[in-house]
């Protein structure tokens, strides 16, 4: 027998004796219905308003808490103008980006040397970039998170390696809560998921030294989100 069969047979042997469900006061084993738990999950999570305005406000409040720079802008041009101001203030010399409607326009507006990740790239070159520009799959109001995947954000490293991660999102990408985000993943990528999906919530952080918050432990020190 191989180890797969050994492990599975030990599990099946062990499971012949039923175990009580936690919180079942009678200690009688009972079955939990498959989808029952999933259906109740949204009720136990932090509340989110129903309208777009409430959700944007929640996203903004979470962003403040997380030290994310969140900017709701009226137009693309406004976002590019603000992006240029950030680039000038931080003295960006080179940026990294991927192919995309919003990112292409932003790259053109910035007029800086660019490292495109779409068709492969040199890691050291990407590492030396001042900022990484990506699009995303969704924004999650409940937690202030950005959902990115290898497909929507130019691979695995673009959103983690450069010291400043700039996300260009559309208003219609704002989702209320985490269950909505995972529902989107299931719907969008059902049988053909990207190899990485990630909920990014704020810039990289650590509290490993005396529980004092430091941003930019390994990933980006800054996270800027434009919602156009």
């Amino acid at each position: 027998m191989n180890e797969r069969d050994n492990i599975l047979s030990r599990i099946r042997e062990a499971l012949r004796v039923p175990a009580p469900v936690p919180g079942a006061h009678d200690h009688e084993p009972r079955e939990v219905s498959e989808a029952e738990a999933a259906k109740t999950i949204p009720r136990w999570l932090p509340a989110v308003g129903a309208t777009f305005e409430q959700q944007v406000e929640l996203f903004r409040a979470n962003s403040t808490d997380l030290k994310t720079d969140f900017r709701l802008v009226a137009s693309r041009d406004e976002s590019f103008a603000q992006l240029k101001a950030i680039a000038a203030a931080e003295g960006w010399k080179k940026i990294a980006a991927h192919k995309g409607e919003l990112t292409d326009a932003a790259v053109a507006a910035l007029a800086l040397p660019v490292c495109k990740t779409d068709a492969g790239y040199d890691v050291r070159e990407l590492e030396a970039c001042d900022a990484g520009l990506t699009e995303c799959d969704a924004l999650v109001a409940q937690t202030g998170s950005v959902l990115v995947t290898t497909r929507s954000a130019g691979g695995r490293a673009l959103s983690i390696l450069p010291p400043h991660h700039v996300v260009l999102a559309r208003r219609d990408q704002l989702l209320p809560d985490l269950p909505a985000a995972y529902a989107l993943v299931r719907k969008k990528y059902a049988d053909n998921p990207p190899s990485l999906l990630c909920l990014i919530t704020g810039p990289s952080r650590t509290g490993d030294i005396e529980r004092i918050l430091v941003l930019g432990a390994h990933g980006p020190k800054k996270l800027t989100i434009f919602c156009v």
């Binding site: 290898t150 691979g155 993943v185 990207p194 190899s195 990485l196 999906l197 909920l199 919530t201 952080r205």
Partner: peptide
Amino acid sequence: GAGQLISCYNSLYSGPRQPGEPDG
């Protein structure tokens, strides 16, 4: 675990680099 609403990076990996992906 840490007093955060959600951790900073919650990643899901479904496999190695897939066709058409630039890295991984």
